[in-house]
């Protein structure tokens, strides 16, 4: 890019965007900075982003040794992957049926989906907890995954996306001899990748970062998800060792950041949903 392309308007736009990005990134930047500071450095009265002594190695070593970080990340991956797979496998046929098939209860189901969107997990947490307790399923992957397998948000998102798909495409598939499950597998899903990508981001980000539900159903460290593990780490191990805590947080947020940076183009494509044309 040549300097000639920096017109005043462009400069103004870029500086506003840059300022906005800085505001939103400030906590993260502060976290990265703190993860590299020694204990004495953190508690000085002056506020500086650059650590006086580089303490990254020590802090990361502490974070990795005091808590089974591998186990936490593993749990996070297993739980998020299971939730995502179940959500997609359940939501896509539901949304297809509601968007493209004609049946009597379609309207009533639509109302139920909208109602479902209005009910937060906090409202159902207690009855769910009691149910898992009675079933003896607390402290398990089942307890972490099961309540989220049916995502009304997912159904709603796919429903909107499928409605925009031309009916003729499905008619052509029927005439070509496909069954309804065949249509979903061979026509709908291959053309719904933008929607699936968008939904995956929402789902994985929400459940990777979720602290509320794991805190309720898990008391055994073996099943702790990353945010819960962080909580144990702070309570039991680190105390006020913020350097190590921030290092642990960095490790935990790293997978999401890396995934986003690697697939940035596809993510943006998925969220704006411009993938299907022609």
């Amino acid at each position: 890019m040549t300097s000639a392309s920096f017109t005043p308007g462009r400069v103004a736009r870029l500086s506003i965007l840059g300022l906005g990005a800085l505001v939103f990134l400030a906590p993260y930047i502060f976290m990265v900075s703190t993860a590299g500071k020694a204990q004495s450095d953190i508690f000085t009265s002056s506020l500086s982003l650059i650590p006086q002594q580089w303490f990254y190695v020590q802090n990361f070593a502490k974070a990795l040794s005091r808590v089974s970080m591998g186990r936490l990340l593993m749990n996070g991956v297993v739980v998020c992957a299971l939730i995502l797979v179940f959500q997609v496998v359940i939501a896509i046929p539901c949304a297809y049926a509601m968007a493209k098939l004609k049946f009597r209860a379609a309207r009533a189901l639509m109302v139920l989906v909208m109602l479902g969107l209005l009910v937060p997990i906090h409202a159902t947490a207690l009855p769910l907890y009691v149910a898992f307790d009675r079933a003896g399923a607390l402290n398990s992957y089942v307890a972490l995954v099961a309540p989220f397998t049916i995502s009304v948000f997912g159904i709603f998102l796919f429903l909107q996306f499928f409605r925009a798909m031309p009916d003729d495409l499905i008619h052509a598939a029927r005439l070509d001899g496909m069954s309804e499950p065949g249509i979903i597998a061979r026509v709908i899903v291959p053309n719904a990748w933008p929607a699936v990508t968008a939904f995956s981001i929402f789902s994985v980000v929400a459940h990777w970062n979720d602290l509320y539900w794991p805190l309720i159903v898990v008391s055994n460290q073996a099943y702790a998800t990353p945010p819960l593990g962080l909580l144990y780490f702070r309570a039991a191990e680190a105390g006020d060792d913020y350097g190590a805590l921030m290092a642990a947080t960095l490790i935990i947020t790293f997978p999401l950041v890396a995934a986003f940076l690697l697939a940035q183009k596809r993510f943006v494509e998925g969220i704006t949903m411009t993938g299907l044309k022609g």
């Binding site: 031309p166 003729d168 008619h171 052509a172 061979r186 026509v187 291959p190 053309n191 299907l276 044309k277």
Partner: peptide, 8 residues
């Protein structure tokens, strides 16, 4: 079909 309805 009028829109051809080819699988994109």
């Amino acid at each position: 079909f009028q829109s051809y309805a080819l699988y994109p």
